[in-house]
Amino acid sequence: MRSVVMLAVVMVTVAGIGPLFAPYDPTAINIPNRLSPPSSEFPLGTDALGRDILSRILHGARWSLGLAFVVSLISLVIGTAIGLLAALGGGLTDWVTMRTTDSFLAFPELVAAIVIAGLTGGGTWSLIFALAVTGWMRYARVARGIGLSLKTRGYVIQAQLAGMSGLAIARWHYLPSLLPSLTVVWTGMFARAILGISALGFLGFGVQPPNPEWGSMLLDARVHIRSTPLQMIWPGLAVVISVLAINLAGDALRDALAEERDGP
């Protein structure tokens, strides 16, 4: 648990204060200096419009990591609500919600996100919408599974008989059991959201120029692969390092939880 909290703090910090260390304005066009190689003036070089790549990477963290964080939290809330609705509603509610979940799962998430983001006009809001709408299903399944197992537990039934309100039961009996597993799912979905945002940016359906986002930076860099190949290294590296860090934290968390449950 601690590792994931630490990770979230570090990521938010990087996205929050990273831009403060940017030497230049990430959107400042400087045509005479276009496509210049790394130098003391521009540590990672400049892009086709002469913009400083280091500044764009640092500002890009706010877009790539920040949006992924928002998207994964929105789908966490949607998914948990749907999963608990299915578990507690039971019967027809359960059947309908779970078949809806199946329908959403019956389609590669990223392809669905491309279709949705593309048809809702591109840009940041349709990006958030597209990724949140296609990212809640795993939370729903996990929340439903845990909800079903809790529903018939003695202490939950006793709490109900004792007149505890539904909200209080959710807060004191459901949330503590849901949190660890949902956090594991969340780390995976956070990483997926980073990949999704940069993939959509790379296809041109994501964050729109001139905003610096790692995927759309790759799209810009791709044209200049022969003249300035280094330009496409940096944004990709930023994506890989972020995703790797989150995945490793998720793995560590999952192992720690398994140990807690099964004993060392």
Partner: peptide, 18 residues
């Protein structure tokens, strides 16, 4: 394998082209 799952296809493709 862990590193591989973190590398997005579009970046790997560009690296291989390079």
């Amino acid at each position: 394998a862990t590193l591989g799952t973190a590398i997005p296809a579009y970046w790997l493709g560009l690296l291989l082209i390079l």
